[in-house]
């Protein structure tokens, strides 16, 4: 028996506990009792899994939409491509609808309407979050692509490089450096939005925290622990992001 359990067992009767003792009792029930701490980490696993999947979907969709929309806006005047025009219109509708409706409503539509027969809540959650994130990532990337000095792509094209090569080697690497802070921000939002998939029964941290509360009738510690877990994840991520930014700034040395 661990010292935490001993400490808990030695507490006086509920009515006779002092303030600190009752706080410790609540914490013990929320964390140690029946090894509940493992439940939080199960939730954490799902959270990370959903975040990574949603991030992958979001970035792929975002890059695709941003490149289509920028390519459409930068066409040669005499060569308007009809197909590109249609795809561009689809992209515009996608961004407008996703940015114009709440994340939670999108989740419920995905979970209870479109995929109502699916039992794989985690996947549905990851998919909805990815689709949501893609719209924001697309706008961030588009902003980055447009903010770059047009002289850069002119220089690439004047050397005879194709549009795609110019994008790939010149524009995107530079734009990426410029948008990294905004992308990091979007990633943090995404990470925290995974807590919403509990509304469609996705088994992430909040879902388990709630489950624990239904057993202990004590909401304080489960929610505080949940908050602390998110905070730690965000801190670790921000630190990593800072490191990456410093590395990308290598070419700025004078």
């Amino acid at each position: 028996m661990s010292i935490w359990t001993q400490l808990y067992e030695n507490l006086p009767e509920v009515a006779a506990r002092s303030g600190w003792q009752s706080i410790y009792a609540k914490f013990y029930q929320a964390w140690f009792e029946s090894d509940r701490w493992m439940t939080y980490f199960r939730g954490l696993g799902t959270t990370l899994q959903v975040t990574v999947m949603a991030l992958a979907i979001g970035v792929m969709l975002g890059v695709l939409v941003a490149v289509i929309r920028t390519a459409h806006d930068q066409q040669r005047v005499g060569q308007r491509n009809i197909l590109l025009g249609i795809v561009n219109a689809v992209c515009k509708v996608y961004v407008t609808v996703i940015r114009g409706t709440p994340m939670m409503v999108q989740l419920m539509i995905m979970g209870f309407v479109i995929f109502k027969s699916s039992r794989n809540f985690t996947m549905v959650g990851a998919l909805s979050l990815g689709i949501n994130s893609g719209a924001y990532v697309a706008e961030i990337i588009r902003g980055g692509l447009m903010s770059l000095d047009p002289g850069q792509s002119e220089a690439g094209r004047s050397l005879g490089l194709s549009y795609l090569d110019t994008m790939r080697f010149i524009v995107i690497p530079q734009a990426f450096k410029a948008i990294l802070p905004s992308l990091g921000n979007e990633f943090i939002v995404l990470l925290k939005d995974t807590s919403l998939i509990s509304v469609i029964a996705g088994k992430e941290i909040v879902y388990f925290a709630r489950a624990i509360i239904t057993k202990t009738y004590e909401p304080m510690f489960p929610y505080l622990i949940t908050a602390a877990m998110y905070l730690i994840m965000v801190l670790v991520f921000s630190w990593l992001q800072g490191k990456l930014e410093r590395r990308l700034r290598q070419s700025d040395r004078r």
């Binding site: 000095d149 002289g151 850069q152 002119e154 220089a155 690439g156 004047s158 050397l159 005879g160 080697f169 010149i170 690497p173 530079q174 450096k177 070419s251 700025d252």
Partner: peptide, 15 residues
Amino acid sequence: QQMGMVFQHFNLFPN
């Protein structure tokens, strides 16, 4: 590819 161009602001690729 057969026409070289040099710009006022150099436009070297900083990356």
